[in-house]
Design a protein around this nucleic acid. Sequence first.
DNA 1: CGCTAAGAGTACCGTACGTTACGGTTCTTA
DNA 2: TAAGAACCGTAACGTACGGTACTCTTAGCG
Lengths: 232, 232
Amino acid sequence: MTSPASSHEPDWTERQHDVLNAVLQLLVEVGDRLTMTDVAKRASCSKETLYKWFGDRDGLLISTVRWQAARVKVLPIDPASLDLGTLRMRLEEFAANWLTVISTKTSLALNRVAIAQAASAGGLGKIVLENGRLEMGRRLKPVLEAGRKAGLLDFPDAETAFRSYFGLVARDIQIRLLLGDEIELSADMIKTDAARAAQQFLALYGAGIPIGSADQTKTPDGTSGPTATRSA
Amino acid sequence: MTSPASSHEPDWTERQHDVLNAVLQLLVEVGDRLTMTDVAKRASCSKETLYKWFGDRDGLLISTVRWQAARVKVLPIDPASLDLGTLRMRLEEFAANWLTVISTKTSLALNRVAIAQAASAGGLGKIVLENGRLEMGRRLKPVLEAGRKAGLLDFPDAETAFRSYFGLVARDIQIRLLLGDEIELSADMIKTDAARAAQQFLALYGAGIPIGSADQTKTPDGTSGPTATRSA
DNA sequence: CGCTAAGAGTACCGTACGTTACGGTTCTTA
DNA sequence: TAAGAACCGTAACGTACGGTACTCTTAGCG
């Protein structure tokens, strides 16, 4: 549990979890326009209870974001015993997991309301940022560092490398989804994308080791591109 | 930047431009919460005039997005006479311009309201997407194609290559800005970022030509010509 | 000078929503 | 089993906002 600044929230009761899940559901359906009445009706509770438990509408939304963040089960990555194959596997796992999460309807809904409120009351934006992008960095960087220590990767600092990997993984997907573009992200496409991103990242930050040679059994099939950048 | 060169749609009068600029200004200041009364007051016009000119609130917002899109004058890129140096320069120009645009306060405000409304009424989202990400693709792809024709680049299709470049350029910047993270994007940093993105893109999609430092050992793979994309 | 049109300013209407208040019901506990 | 707390359902209140109507000023024009 490497949560430095967040360790006081999850003492909700089961009933309260139901309410927060109802909020998530409604957020997906109607987005920003959810009303307290809607929440009360969906959760089969009274509005008075909502206000007693969560203070006001913003408090309810913030609690919901926290609850969702705590619920998203991101697989921890073990930086131990790295060779090139497992490093690539870790990178692909991370990318696939990340793509899966950000294309979730709940993630999109949460990011939408957070972005909408980021202009005025920046509370939600900060929280989503903290549990989204920043948490991902915190999680992957040890792997990158381990890769560097093992002589597999070469980069000036982990933050820079991570941000590049982030770009290679997400590309324009998140912004397009947020803007309402209907992209179909099947599991196969996610896997292909993750493989391509890892491939490209290793091509950029690999420590002089030929990438596409020898023991590479799974060539990214389909829409992946540059397997030939370092062909000996 | 000031030359409108409006192709077909917006033949607004000067007075109406003032109104739309007021909307942009207010959008930056209060974001989603702008009211018609605010607009009328800021633009020194009556609400009735707003409704006569723009129909309703959504019409006003859509017109504003169109107006801003028409006002952003992105430099056209000339795909003629490509060598590696000019290709890299074109790529850097594109990246720097794109980073500059998306970090603008107006661009952020517009994207925020479009994203907020994308869940329910997808009108704005589609328009922003069309004038943002998709227009960028439309603009850069000819350059990429020219680079491929000149034997400088190697990719299966321009869309894939463009999306990777998009990721290398934007990384996590746009989502962080949208969520309210205060990032300082100086002109120097943009230039550095653009150079790094172009560098990495050429490393990934360059046609077998060594990129790194100016004169490196040329790996003489004569087979990888510009027409080597038939594999897989 | 009167007539007309456009538009600024403002009052007004209907509605939707956040928030509060209250009566009735269920659960806890002694 | 009965007191008391927690909670549900709903009515009510105040406010804010989208949209409309009405008045008043200004400009063009015969």
